[in-house]
Amino acid sequence: MKTIHVSTTVNGDAAEFICGPDESLLDVLRNRLGLTGAKEGCGTGDCGACSVMLDGRLVCSCLVLGAEAEGVTVDTIEGLAEGDHLHPLQQSFIDHAALQCGVCTPGILVAAKALLDRNPDPTETEVRYWLAGNLCRCTGYDKIIHAVMDAAKTMRAA
């Protein structure tokens, strides 16, 4: 299989990689760019653990070819905090005990940020439906929803 050279932007920085034509963006991020924050929980778009932003759209990186990243912007969990300053969602998840094992957390944070960027004041139901594609087996979602609602409140006040 002939590999493909791809130039893209990851978390604001230019990035280049070569990948196989059938390689997923998730595999590229994890295995070629060393960004292991996005996780593979299923590989079929059913769990959301691999969530990233692709040109400003929330997607499952397991359902994107690495080759499709040419000329677009990719934002991952690794770009959420600014230096040592956590994003309000990250702080809220810690404060509200909204994570246990934490393996779904990067995907949920990326998805929650995508929601708050377009809807700064969501209802609980809107949060629950927006995050329906992010499976969490530890928390029963209760504290996650609470943390997102509370972060939204903090961000609105800022």
């Binding site: 991952t76 956590l86 934490g102 393996v103």
Partner: peptide, 23 residues
Amino acid sequence: TRPPRPDGVDKVTGRALYGADMS
């Protein structure tokens, strides 16, 4: 009391290393 978990920052930044994250 309810102090923050020590693994919290690693887990919200994607830094925490799970089974598949080691090479």
